[in-house]
Computed example of a mutant assay.
Amino acid sequence: MSSVVCTLFEGHFHHGVAALANSLYNYGYRGVIYAGYRGPLPTWAGNAIDCSTSQWPGASILKVTDDFQILFLPINNEYHLTNYKPNFMLGLWESFANDSNAIAYFDPDIVIKCKWDFFETWMGHGVALVHESISNDMPPTHPFRKEWEKVIKKANRQITRQMHSYINGGFCGVSKENKEFLKDWIEITNAGIKYFKLTPGQWKHSFDRTYIFYAQDQDALNITAMCSNSPVSEIGPEGMDFIAGGFTMSHALGAPKPWKKQYIRSVLMGNAPSTPDKNFWKNTLGPIKTFGNNRIKYKKLTITLASFIARFYRRA
């Protein structure tokens, strides 16, 4: 399968993009990563060469190795990047990635942990999705799902499958034969905007968790999984290291992110280094480096020390 990877980032999340790229390269991915971004490019992308087109003015490509590149694509619209995922993926199929058989989106705080071939196999079974840890058990009779049925009706769709778990929005892998799923995701988002006060231009909002689009793109993704005709292939929360036993990805949820976290201070506040913290720093040595060797050694040392402290110390 000829597949490609994409991500969206801005600001300090460029550190996560580099680690994601390193993990992909180290596990066998070759080709182009399509990175949509806002703001200035990071300094490590300073050698990127302009490759603008009429569809993507300002595009530039960085040659990491002879067989591995990152194509940076400036995003100029009102959407918050987290709400732009299906539009971005579909736009790639209509431009640079039109010959690709599959596109996998990863949030820029994820690294992979297994051979890239597995992801290609996975996407061949259906739209690749991973369960959340919170609300993972979300049966068809859950009140959110019953309210989401109203969104589906407003979008002139019907329920096509009974979902039992809540999906994390940080990863989605779609084969070309299932790209209708992305169009469905956009339609559900548009219904949320038109009828349910979804605000795609902002990530934070004033509604509480009872709001049916509280998690915005993630809730829209879950609704789409309920009503799309495209098949889906799900892995449990271990698929992102939310619980033990995973082998596919590590997803560093919450804040601070691994590249900003002060591990000794954090463990003294009762928070031990997580598996995603450790896996991020494992993927900082190359082929892209955003930190010097001494910084990387120091961070790995503090993670080891903090993990040791966590064996004996718990904050009351």
Rank of each mutant, 00 (worst) to 15 (best):
A272Q: 09
W259P: 00
M249L: 07
L198H: 04
S250V: 02
L268G: 00
D217T: 10
A252Q: 01
F247L: 14
K260N: 13
T199H: 13
F207Q: 08
I193R: 06
I235K: 09
I193P: 05
S250K: 00
A215F: 07
Q218W: 14
F207T: 08
K282V: 10
G270Q: 06
N229A: 04
F242S: 08
A255P: 12
E238S: 10
K204L: 14
T248L: 15
A225P: 03
Y263M: 12
P200W: 01
M269T: 13
F247A: 13
Q202C: 04
K194S: 15
S266N: 08
F280W: 08
W259I: 03
R209F: 11
G246A: 11
A255D: 14
A244S: 11
P273A: 12
K282M: 13
I212Q: 02
N229R: 11
S228M: 03
P200E: 03
V232R: 02
I243C: 09
Y214K: 09
S266P: 01
E238H: 14
G246V: 07
G254P: 00
N222M: 08
A244K: 07
H251A: 02
L221V: 05
M226G: 01
P273S: 11
Y211Q: 05
M240Q: 10
D277M: 05
K204E: 15
Q218F: 11
S230G: 07
M226S: 00
K197W: 15
G201R: 07
L268D: 03
I264H: 03
I193C: 11
T224Y: 01
R265Y: 12
I212N: 00
I223A: 05
K278R: 06
P276Q: 02
S233L: 09
A272R: 05
L198K: 02
D217W: 03
Y195V: 14
E238K: 13
Y263A: 09
P273F: 03
V267T: 02
P237H: 07
T248Y: 09
P237M: 07
W203C: 05
P237C: 06
A252P: 00
G236C: 08
G254V: 09
H205P: 06
Q262V: 15
A191M: 06
L268F: 11
G236W: 14
T199A: 12
T248H: 08
I223S: 02
I235S: 12
Q216L: 14
G239P: 01
A272T: 11
G201M: 11
K194Y: 15
S206D: 10
H251L: 05
T224C: 03
L253R: 00
W281S: 03
T248N: 06
I235H: 13
Q216W: 11
M226C: 02
G192S: 12
P231F: 13
Y211I: 08
K278W: 02
T199P: 01
M226A: 01
G236M: 14
Y263G: 05
N229P: 00
Y214G: 10
L268M: 11
A225V: 09
P273H: 10
G192A: 14
L253C: 01
F196K: 09
P200L: 04
K257E: 05
K204M: 14
D219L: 06
R209P: 00
H205S: 13
F213L: 07
N222D: 12
P273M: 06
F196N: 10
S266G: 04
P256C: 07
S230T: 03
A225T: 12
S228W: 01
M269C: 13
P276L: 05
F196A: 08
S274K: 03
K197S: 15
K261D: 06
